[in-house]
């Protein structure tokens, strides 16, 4: 579907993309993660032929996004990160217009989506909130019969209920055999939806892989009620941010030492235990939170998992 290699793009002196690689295969929902300003939107704009790459090879649906614009665009739909619409057109008119320009849209799906997203298509676009403008773009994209969806932070203005609707729609799209590139910094979303993710920072790849692969890089949060005072716990290996309160402990543990830590706890006796799986938020914190160059994890287990 998408194959990007060594993509570079500068705006004046700003290097927005600095040798980026990205691969999305057919039928895959691919999460494209990175903090603000890391180059997600720039990459998607290059994929759409809106920006011209300075260097690198970009193949989209087997074509060149800069040259085969109209041919490729018939087969994909795009939801911009910042949806700006024509103030005196209604939402319904915009949905139809964009659909027609893409080569037609499925009227039944259009009606269902309007209902699921609870969007009033008779309102003028100037009266829509940011979230509603985003819904207009989403309905227009999802109602088209296309092979590939390019979604740039599509839920940044949606409320939690609508986010769930969005997830359901993407799941359904996957079942219908569509491929999706979903850029986001809402990490729970990527976690819930994506088969594989690419994490970038400052225009460069940091990690790529399935979530299971990337889980090696993260710590698990443990919170436990113990039978006695947690004496030996502090000396366990791979423990971070230990917090002791009477017989209660809280800490994060590196994946490689999870075993050992649990054994240490059961030695004291466990009355209650809550463990939280690593979230992508933590992944981010690890890679970007401390600002260490390259964001490489200290844990050697991570290196093996890196693809």
């Amino acid at each position: 579907m998408i194959r990007v290699q060594g993509l570079r793009k500068s705006f004046g002196r700003t290097k927005a993309l600095d040798g980026l690689d990205l691969q999305v295969s057919v039928g895959e929902v691919h999460g494209f993660l990175g903090p603000n300003g890391s180059g997600k939107s720039t990459t998607i704009r290059v994929l759409l032929g809106l920006l011209r790459a300075d260097a690198g090879t970009v193949t989209l649906l087997g074509g060149d996004p800069w040259r085969d614009v109209t041919r490729l665009h018939r087969r994909l739909a795009y939801v911009p990160g910042d949806v700006s619409l024509w103030p005196n057109l209604t939402g319904g008119e915009v949905i139809d217009l964009l659909g027609r320009l893409r080569g037609g849209l499925n009227p039944k799906r259009r009606a269902t989506l309007l209902e699921r997203f609870d969007l009033d298509p008779t309102k003028k676009c100037r009266a829509y909130s940011k979230g509603n403008r985003q819904k207009v773009a989403l309905v227009a994209a999802l109602a088209s019969d296309v092979e590939l969806l390019l979604l740039d932070e599509p839920t940044s203005g949606l409320d939690p209920l609508m986010e769930q609707t969005f997830r359901d729609c993407i799941e359904q799209g996957r079942d219908d055999g569509r491929s999706v590139l979903l850029s986001s910094h809402i990490l729970a979303e990527a976690e819930a939806l994506c088969d594989r993710v690419s994490i970038i920072r400052a225009g460069r790849n940091v990690e790529t892989g399935t979530l299971t692969e990337l889980r090696h890089l993260t710590r698990t949060s443990i919170s436990a009620d113990l039978a006695g005072p947690p004496n030996g716990v502090a000396s366990l290996r791979g423990i971070h941010d230990l917090d002791v309160e009477g017989n209660r402990v809280r800490f994060d543990v590196d994946a490689a030492y999870l075993d050992e830590a649990l054994r240490g706890l059961t030695e004291v006796g466990v009355r209650g235990l809550v463990s939280q799986p690593p979230t992508l938020e933590q992944l981010f914190l690890e890679h970007y939170g401390n600002g260490s160059a390259g964001g490489r994890p200290a844990d050697p287990a991570g290196a093996a998992a890196r693809s």
């Binding site: 319904g92 008119e93 217009l97 027609r100 009033d120 009266a127």
Partner: peptide, 23 residues
Amino acid sequence: TDRPGPATAPAGLRSPLGLAWRL
């Protein structure tokens, strides 16, 4: 308040020129 408009686009709104004319 803005009056509600049509829920679907008229037949003429199917090209960039149709949109430009509308604008």
